[in-house]
Amino acid sequence: MTRVILFNKPMNVLSQFTDRGTEGSDRQTLSDFIKVPGVYPAGRLDRDSEGLMILTDNGRLQARISNPKFKQPKTYLAQVEGDATEAQLDQLRRGVDLNDGMTRPAQAVRIDDPGLWPRTPPVRFRKSVPDCWISLTITEGRNRQVRRMTAHVGLPCLRLVRWSVGDWTLDGLAPGQWRDA
């Protein structure tokens, strides 16, 4: 029987079970939260990003979730600096030309503040610069792709939370919590 775990990765947690960084490093990893033998992450999430990670003991499922050729949709909630315009969202919807090539078209909409948990450390706010939230669904998984896409259209990312992967969502999971799917 395949085991699938949904985990809400907090900010500053590495999306791996061991820290191969500098000696004496005390960075948190998945092993600080998940004590289940034989499961491995299906894909990665940057240390400075939060949200849904899927872990499984099934190698085929792991590949299907993480390999871009399967075009598994991943939805991110991004708090961005600036006041997102329809023109900027349209650029994201068409795909943007990054230094590693054109991205696939994304679904991009402006959303109300989703009322997420407080982030530690808090997002920096500047009184003179507005910010807003957008929902962005992509079917690729390039390195820091969502951050690079939003920056490319003039909306630097302040906070990034992966909300869903395929049909799996973060709904009901607090940061650092996990459950079987």
Rank of each mutant, 00 (worst) to 15 (best):
T2M: 12
F7E: 00
V13Q: 03
S15W: 14
S15D: 10
D19R: 10
G21M: 09
L30V: 11
S31V: 08
D32F: 13
G38Q: 15
G38V: 15
Y40L: 04
P41S: 12
P41D: 12
A42C: 12
A42T: 06
A42Y: 01
A42E: 00
G43Y: 10
I54K: 00
G59E: 05
A63L: 12
N67F: 09
N67R: 06
P68V: 14
Q72Y: 09
L77Y: 06
A78C: 11
E81N: 02
A84M: 04
E86H: 05
A87Q: 15
L92F: 11
R93M: 07
D97Y: 08
N99A: 10
D100C: 03
G101N: 07
T103N: 03
I111W: 15
D113V: 11
D113S: 07
W117T: 08
V123G: 08
R124W: 10
F125I: 11
F125N: 05
R126F: 10
C132N: 13
I134G: 00
S135H: 06
L136C: 06
T137G: 10
E140Q: 14
G141E: 09
N143I: 09
R144D: 02
Q145G: 00
M149A: 05
A151C: 04
V161L: 12
S164N: 08
G166I: 08
D167W: 09
D167E: 15
W168H: 14
D171M: 09
D171G: 07
D171E: 15
P175W: 07
P175Y: 05
W178R: 05
D180R: 13
A181M: 10
